[in-house]
């Protein structure tokens, strides 16, 4: 029995005039497209690694990747005897079918595209979406990947991201944080404010402008409460916050200003008799 490869390629698959050969070419072209897309996007990423911010680089890489794949798909389509001119007519119907069949997928896709172009978040940003807080690891076509501050991987569908309230903690250049510092009533509040301001002024990233503000905010049950408002670069504010508070505490203590413990003065209407004390005194007299 002779084996002829050409004949095998010409065997119809049962759908229109499509042969195994057509199907094979279709798959080969598509595979080549995917491989070329991969190679090109890897090289684009490598070339742009030091020239573009990560977010723009990833967006451009993805656009090139999907662009090449779609291009390969369009080139491969005639192998399936698919008339591209009919695509316009069929597009509407197919669109409807796809729309109903994959509503959430399309919704996520469209939301993903909007996210990429609207830029409410970028890769590396610290964000809060719904009940997820963390840094953005990747913005994909269908989903956004967030690494929580505990290092946990969370995949959020783009539709959820797009329709939720997004808090981006580093979108602006600078942000403000505050401390509550309690001092004893007998301590000099003016001196405490001056010392706190001096410590803040020595920190490189506690911004000179907007100027920090330290003031007596309220008179508490156990302490005079000072509030300090400090502006810091949005991407470094946490480092500044964790660094400064200890330094302020140390500086206050070095100057004899203490942060008081909760205390309560109790008054007894009939005085307070301590039995043990009298017994002790009697013992001494004897």
């Amino acid at each position: 029995m002779t084996f002829n490869a050409t004949e095998i390629l010409e065997i119809p698959v049962g759908v229109g005039d499509i042969t195994i050969g057509n199907l094979l070419y279709f798959v080969i072209i598509l595979t080549l497209g995917v491989i070329v897309a991969k190679i090109v996007s890897i090289n684009v990423r490598r070339v742009l690694s030091e020239r573009l911010p990560k977010n723009e680089r990833e967006l451009l890489t993805k656009l090139i990747n999907y662009g090449i794949i779609i291009w390969a798909f369009v080139i491969a389509l005639p192998q399936l005897n698919f008339d591209l001119s009919g695509l316009l007519v069929a597009g509407g119907i197919v669109g409807l079918v796809i729309g109903f069949a994959s509503q959430s997928v399309v919704s996520n896709l469209v939301s993903g595209l909007f996210l990429m172009f609207e830029h409410p978040i970028k890769i590396g940003d610290n964000i809060n979406v719904g009940d997820v807080s963390g840094s953005v690891e990747d913005i994909r076509i269908l989903s956004t990947v967030v690494k929580t501050y505990d290092g946990i991987y969370v995949r959020i569908p783009n539709e959820t991201v797009f329709t939720s309230n997004i808090t981006n903690y580093v979108h602006n250049a600078a942000r403000r944080f505050e401390y509550q510092i309690g001092i004893r009533y007998e301590d000099d509040a003016d001196a405490a404010i001056r010392i706190a301001k001096e410590v803040i002024a020595t920190h490189p990233f506690a911004l000179k402008s907007p100027a920090p503000s330290v003031f007596v905010d309220n008179l508490g049950d156990n302490s005079v409460n000072l509030t300090a408002y400090i502006w810091a670069p949005a991407r470094n504010w946490w480092d500044v916050r964790t660094d400064l508070l200890l330094k302020i505490k140390q500086a206050l203590e070095e100057n004899g200003i203490e942060i008081p413990f909760p205390q309560r003065t109790v008054w007894f209407a009939d005085g307070l008799e301590v039995k043990g004390r009298f017994a002790g005194e009697r013992g001494k007299e004897e």
Binding site: N172, A173, A174, R175, R176, T202, P204, F205, L207, K208, S209, P210, W231, P233
Partner: peptide, 19 residues
């Protein structure tokens, strides 16, 4: 020497600068 940074412009549109 030690360094100091500041904001030029508003927190929304400004830039962090060495001061």
């Amino acid at each position: 020497d030690s360094q100091k940074y500041t904001l030029y412009g508003s927190p929304t549109n400004g830039v962090i600068t060495r001061y």
